[in-house]
Design a protein around this nucleic acid. Structure first.
Lengths: 346, 346
DNA sequence: TTGTATGCGTTATCAC
DNA sequence: GTGATAACGCATACAA
């Protein structure tokens, strides 16, 4: 534990005034070369760390943060994001942070664009967003980039953009699901089910599928045993029932989003309890089926933590000038009926 | 987002000076009753929140924290605690925090007592500790309590003490292990194995055992199928081999601490790969057996996070006067070969 | 090119 | 009982 040097200390050591030290630190110029060098060396030597807290005492700026998020009323998955955002705000309540949130319908690309446009009118310093739709998000992100507005994205990554990203390795989470089904299911067919393809150009489902397949590709004996089924939410019930009944050798099902409860409901009514089921996310409906044993495992994507971290990174960037990590991957949580409870508060 | 009121604002509103407000806030007395009441009501009305940052600017106290921890050189499980502690320290580097760490041998109760005594000589303001040995920890904690020194414990809880605790619900983690084995193992005998009982009056293993049994008690068909085996580390190899070979109907094994790799080694050499294995903790040896499929699941107790949170709570208590939660339970993480990687940095 | 004065919100020490 | 005032570490406007 070393002594903490202040600007005053350094000024004394260098035999100049605090003002000069400040000019050197912030490269404001108007300092004689020899003095500048001397001070710079001194700063290096003692490894000067400014007191970030004191720095912000003076700086009573108002920080404007824009948020472009899916509407929880349209899809319950997003509900917990609000908690994460509120937590971050309360942690930094000492600073004057104004959050402007615009919600969009996660099944509607136009709503995304419209919300984006409206958000821009509040002229935010920096933006937090869920870039749900690949094509639209790409162009929106390009807008921000050109405007020089830093953006932090979460949930799914738009690879081509330079925006920072917080979320999970979706490819790897597909592999986790595969490993789980491989461990628990009897030998037979495995199905990947994509529900609600209204989320059109959504890459995340494809990434999970790629991971899932790659796991079984690494094994022998699973060629031609990986089935696939895409379903629109308008037709879920009937098409799904047909799929489950017609594939008599089906032993495991992987649902690539939070809609596993649709499959669970059918497995229960059709008495197919030999079929193992793995899905995503701790929605109340999923958790119920997990507890009664119809869903075997859920993968937790921790949207609350994603939103929390995203906002926290942005705030720390604004007030402390901290670097935002370009890519921050959360661990992939495996949930069963016995460990689910403490995750519900996350 | 409401306006932030400062003491100056309140002084103006109340028509008195900042000094008086300060005296009211800190109950320093020397304030006329009517003025005091008026100011108190005002503080309530506008929900005054002091700026904790500014408060600590002035308050350049040195905080002495004592830490009583198991020596990572004696048991690799504790290695990652150091990372957690360093993270907390670096997060609060703006404050002058002096950490005095005393290590003890986790197989030796006397070493625990001796380290404790030595720690006391540094007269810490507050203490972070792992109360590994029930009897000894109980008396040590009583000492601290009488001396009025606040303590935060992690890893295992000493129920009779009022000290704050951070860790997992060990009973529940036993249930998680049971559920996992029940899901993946064939019908047959299940064994609970306690390795290294040198950790004598250690309650944590018994708690895990209780949880494990309770899960199977809730089911039918498992009476008389739960076996149990205690092993000293000096005799591990032979006794364990005999146990695994003699119980021919064994289908699943639950190791109650981080020593599952001992069992894994034997399962591999004895070609018993039909026996499923669940254990604890991401030691390098365990992770290796997890990746090759000899260990099926590991439960992650996140010692890094436990140490980090413990120290963080203590520091926030000292500098911000925050309440330390009496009991803080971390989620029980289920780890398999596919999701292990990101947890290794935790 | 450099030093000084002032202020951020809070606390503590004075003098009245 | 009460109200000024200095100080914490840093930033900045302004004077020299």
């Amino acid at each position: 534990m070393m002594k903490k040097y202040t600007i005053k200390d350094i000024a004394q050591l260098a035999g100049v005034s605090k003002g000069t030290i400040d000019r050197v630190i912030h490269n404001r110029g108007n300092v004689a070369k020899d003095v500048e060098n001397k001070v710079k060396r001194l700063l290096e030597d003692i490894n000067y760390q400014p007191n970030l807290i004191a720095r912000n005492l003076k700086n009573n700026r108002i920080y404007q943060i824009g948020a472009l998020l899916p509407d929880p009323k349209k899809d319950a998955y997003w509900e917990v994001c609000t908690d994460g955002i509120n937590q971050a705000l309360s942690e930094f309540s000492a600073f004057d942070i104004r959050l402007h949130t615009m919600l969009f319908d996660p099944t509607d690309t136009e709503s995304f664009i419209k919300s984006h446009q409206q958000l821009m009118t509040s002229a935010p310093d920096i933006i937090l967003m869920v870039p749900l739709f690949y094509k639209e998000a790409k162009s929106v992100l390009k807008n921000y980039e050109e405007a020089g507005i830093q953006v932090c994205t979460f949930n799914n990554q738009i690879e081509v953009s330079k925006a920072n990203f917080i979320g999970q390795d979706l490819y790897q989470s597909g592999r986790v699901a595969a490993k789980l089904l491989h461990t628990i299911a009897d030998k037979g067919d495995m199905a990947i089910i994509h529900i609600d393809e209204k989320y059109k150009n959504a890459v995340h489902m494809q990434e999970k599928e790629r991971g899932f397949k790659s796991y079984f590709d690494d094994l022998s004996g699973f060629q031609d045993h990986i089935l696939k089924c895409k379903i629109r939410y308008t037709e879920t019930e009937d098409k799904l029932r047909a799929f489950l009944i017609n594939n008599s050798n089906l032993k495991g099902v992987f649902v690539t989003n939070s809609k596993a409860f649709h499959v669970a409901r059918l497995l229960e009514t059709e008495n197919k309890n030999h079929i193992k089921l793995v899905g995503y996310d701790l929605l109340a409906e999923n958790v119920n089926y997990l507890k009664v044993g119809v869903i075997d495992f859920l993968i937790h994507q921790n949207p609350r933590q994603q939103a929390y971290l995203g906002l926290k990174f942005l705030i720390e960037h604004l007030v402390f000038e901290k670097q935002i990590p370009n890519k921050f991957l959360l661990p992939i949580d495996i949930i069963n009926s016995e460990n689910v409870t403490p995750f519900l508060r996350d």
